[in-house]
Structures are given as C-alpha cells and as structure tokens.
Design a protein around this nucleic acid. Sequence first.
RNA 1: CGGGCUGUGGCGCAGUGGUAGCGCACACGCCUGGGGGGCGUGGGGUCGCUGGUUCAAAUCCAGUCAGCCCGACCA
Length: 586
Amino acid sequence: MRASQLPLFTSKDDPKDAQVASHRLLSRAGFIRKQGSGLYVYMPFGDMVHRKIEQIVREEMNRFGGIEVTLPVITPAELWQESGRWDLMGKEMMRMQDRHEVGYALGPTHEEAMTDLARSFLQSYKQLPVNLYQIGRKYRDEIRPRYGLIRCREFVMKDAYSFHVDDASLDETYQKMREAYRAIFERCGLKTIPVEADSGNMGGSGSEEFMVASQIGEETLLLCSDEKCGYRSNQEKTAFIENPKKHGSTEPTNRGISPSADAAVEFETGAAKTIEEVSKLTGSEPRNFIKAVIFEDKENIFLCFIQGDRDLSEIKMKNLAGATEYWPAGEETIKALTGAEPGYAGPQGLKVKDGDTVAKKTLRIFFDRHLKGRSGLIAGANKTGFHTKNVAEGRDFQSGEGHDLIVSHAGDICPQCKKAELTETRGIEVGHIFKLGKKYSQKMNLSVLDPNGKPLTPTMGCYGIGVGRTMATSVEQNHDERGIIWHRNLSPFVVYLVSLAKGEAEVAFVDKLYATLTAQGISVYLDDRDERAGVKFNDAELVGFPFIVTVGKKTLESGKIELKLRRSGEKLEVSEAELIGKIQSL
RNA sequence: CGGGCUGUGGCGCAGUGGUAGCGCACACGCCUGGGGGGCGUGGGGUCGCUGGUUCAAAUCCAGUCAGCCCGACCA
C-alpha cells in the first residue's frame, strides 16, 4: 500500500487529555481518534491492528473448540429481568426504549443473550458441551472513561460462553480456554500474568484473570516473592495473612498496652474518634485497635470488626454477606446499633447480637479471623466520647474462628506457601475466564434431557478478552520515546518503505523493490509522499512497523539497501536478497 | 454522585471592559532536499450555549451544556 492511496494521519502533538503512552502514541500515530468521552474511531492503521487481533483470537478460539456467532448489540430488557440483573446492573448499563416504550440494554456483556440463544436449540445432553463465542461491541457507561482505549464506553470484546452437563466437563473447557488464552497473548507478543481472581457479581467458583503488568493498571496484583511458590492473585481475592514481623511473634496474639488479665475499662476520649486520634492520645499503635466498619443494605446491617491498622475489603465482605447493593451505614442506623454517635462502635458491651433486629433490619456481625485470641485491645465503648481498653477476645467478646475480611498488601504472607512475603504490581486486565456455574441457566430455565430422560440444568463457563485493550496494552508494553513498536503479528504492515527517490531511475528502483517485496508475501507500506526525509523517518518510527527500509540516492550509488530494525534501532546495509531473507527470518 | 479546573481558527494555547492574536497545521510561490528546513504571501474564529450588567463583554454576573482531573471510604 502506498501513502498516496492510504494516507497517514500522524500528528506532532499529543492530544491534551492523553495521560498514558498508549493513548498518546495511538493518537499521534493516527491509529485512533476520539469522538466523544470514551468513544474512539479506529483509523485505518488502528482498524488493521484491531482486525489482526480479532483474527488471532478467532483462530485460537476455533482451534480450542469455540463456535462463532454474532448476537445483537441490543438485548431486550426481558432477558435481563429474567436473570434479575435489570435491577442489579445499575447505571453502568446503557438503557433505551423503542417507540413502544419497550426497554432494551446496549449490552455490557451477554450472559443473558447467550443463555437465551442456547436454550432455543439445546435439548439433549448429547449436544453438550458447547462453547459459543462472539466478537462484538460492548457498551458500559463507565463512571470515568480514561486512558484512551484502556477504559472506554464502547469497545470490542470476544466473549465466549460454554454449557456443560457437569463440573468435570466445565473444567475441561475451562482448561482449554486457559490454553487458548495463553496462545492468543503469546501470538500477540503480549506478556500477561495470569492471576487468581475474584469472580465478583458473576457468581461462580474458578476464575483467572490475564493481566498486563503496568504502572497505570487499575488493579493491584499480589505475587509471591518465592518463585517456586508462584502464587499470583488479584488483591481483591488474596487471603490476608499477617506478617509475623509486624508484631514480633508468630502468634497473632497479645501485643496490647497491658496484660490480658486486666479487666476491660472505659476511658474518656472526648472528641477523638478515629483510630489515628485515639492512637495518639493513648500511645498505643493502631494494630491494637479494633476497627468497626458498618454497612447496610435494604434488609441487613453488616457490622464488621477488624484490626485497626488494616482496611476492610468490601469485596470480601460483600461476598461473605451475599450482598449486592449496599452502602455505608447512616448515622441513624449506627445510633440504633451502638447507642452512640458514629465513631464509637466496639464489639464488647454491645446490647445487640448477630441475628437481632435493629432498626427493622437484620444485624449481621462479622469478625476478621486475626482478632481471635487477641487481648489488650482498644475499641469504641458504644458510648459517645468513650473507648474501652484491655479488651480481650474470648472474654469481652467472641469472634469465633472469624473470616477473611482484610485487604492484603505487599509485605503480607503468601496465602499459598504461607512463608514468603507478597509483592505488589499494578495490572490491566485484558482477559478473564471463569466458571459461572448454574446461575444463568437456572434463572433462565435452560434445561436439557439427561440420559435418563430427566431434565438437567447445564453448568456454564464464561471467557472474555478485550480486543481494544489488548491493542492498547501491547503499545504500553512496546514503545520508546520515538513511537510504537508493533509485534509483527499485530503491525498493520511489516515494512515501512521510506522512499527518498527523486529522479526517474530512483523512482523505478523503489517501485521495483516494492513489487518484489510484495510478491514475496511481505506487506509493505510505501511512503511515496513529497515530504522531507526527516518527516518520513519520524513518521516511520512513530507508527512503529517492525522494519524500516530506506531507499534513495545512496542506494543506487552503493547498491545497498538500508534496513533499520524498529525495536533495536539496529541499522544494516544489505543487498535485496539479504533484505528479503532478513525480513522473512526475523 | 461530590469537589476542582477548562471551553477562543483543524490542533495546542495567549488574551483583566474599548475593532480577536500566537505557534503548529492548511493553500500558493521561491529556495532547500538523508532526521519534523527557510523566506514570503494568503484563507480560516457567531470566543461552548442562554440570559443579565454596561455606552461597550472573549473579558464581569447567573444559569446551562460539554470535556478533563481528583475522590468515591473504613465512623
């Protein structure tokens, strides 16, 4: 292809809203153009890369047993109502009505639509397993679209949904998808870190995310520092184990301000409410406090106690409580619960217990497991202006075995090997596979006959890859100060041919080289613009095709063609035959 | 949803009440010709929108819309 037929859309300046390399470079190199908040046009080169990724995804999905279909982008509200998600999805789902005022969603995901499709033709266990996928547009009204293609409101996703007679069959497909994903990202030249993940709202058990390590990542990953262990997990999911270094003992016990034998006593703290304030006042470190975090939903109040130097994981709490929509408890609720102003909740001396009705809601109390056996603690006294010290678990309150409720961080102990410390990395999710279970098949009455002629509800898996995000993260991972460095499998063209030809002879030489390379099956972009050399070199490096070939007066004089490798910057002077050999072998 | 900032030519920006400017880009001419070149000429803007104050508003005031940034909270 020639520049005279397929123009470049490069620019010298970064768009002003570009914060990250991929956004900056994809815009400057003319691959994408913003049309609205979180909405991007894929320009010719961008479109070409996008299609290449789609094709790789398609080939690998097909190789591992996927069947491609295309669902409507718009899904009827009816289907979402069946699954119950019409009310659960919240504002992130874009909704619309037709002229008859019938509701629809611009699909943010397609579990319902695909399950509906499946039930329309699945009748017998003999038809299972089946793995249906599509490569289609998704719409999410993101709170804050940002980072260009990394978080936008319209994007292309490959989403697959598999249906099975039992868990063994689901597991088999799940493992195939793990392989397929590894193959896909490998072919894209993208280094991903597969991590254990929370399965979130989707429900279900097994879940693995494919993350690209990046400082701009919106999720935090925790990796075991012992490579032999190899544990990798999304922070949301990582079980918290406190590092003994934190308290100088391997036993998670008594490090309070006074011996556990002392009775618990109230003391006045006045306006000091937060742990930080009371910590200063008493000289006791935050770890010796009990932090109370209170949420509520329509039916319940969730009262969570954890140690004071840590944060409550809302995700863990939510999963434990089975809550979907919840919010921080209001002042009235807290008063009804503790009898005090907010800021003074504690587990001891509480007049209500787990399961009681408080303010017309069911109280549910959760303790973090690290509170078990501890003493010498400081907690709110459930009395405005007072805290209690020398609080001991087992005597002043009962935590039971407790739950895993705390957000893990670097420096904590790996929950897998239980020895090494965890380290932290930021990551961008590009793929996610998980076992859904029967959530959708049940709610939507998907059923087949089993060998005994009895109804059987298939179990499901679900597997997504963000195509645009794969493109963006590939740039995040592969660029330098001059521009993008495409992996050959994704690059719009393999060769950027810089023509500096002037006279007829030179032009003829370039045309012949272009024809020769093309005939060898090498895709070439010929920059035949009437521009200065510098402009062409700069654009060549900005758009980032793997090979930059320069032909001009020097070429004719020496008989040698200049080949520059975009990634290494290495420059070679080669004959035409060598050139072809190099391009085909590298 | 809350807070902050910004809306002026295609892009990036300046312009504190008195006839709308700069750089880049664009068009034309000449020079130049292996790393975003030079000189000259030229075209292009209802200053986001609505209302108000004023003899006079891009500029001050109110509202509104849009974009960007930060936060989404642990009492």
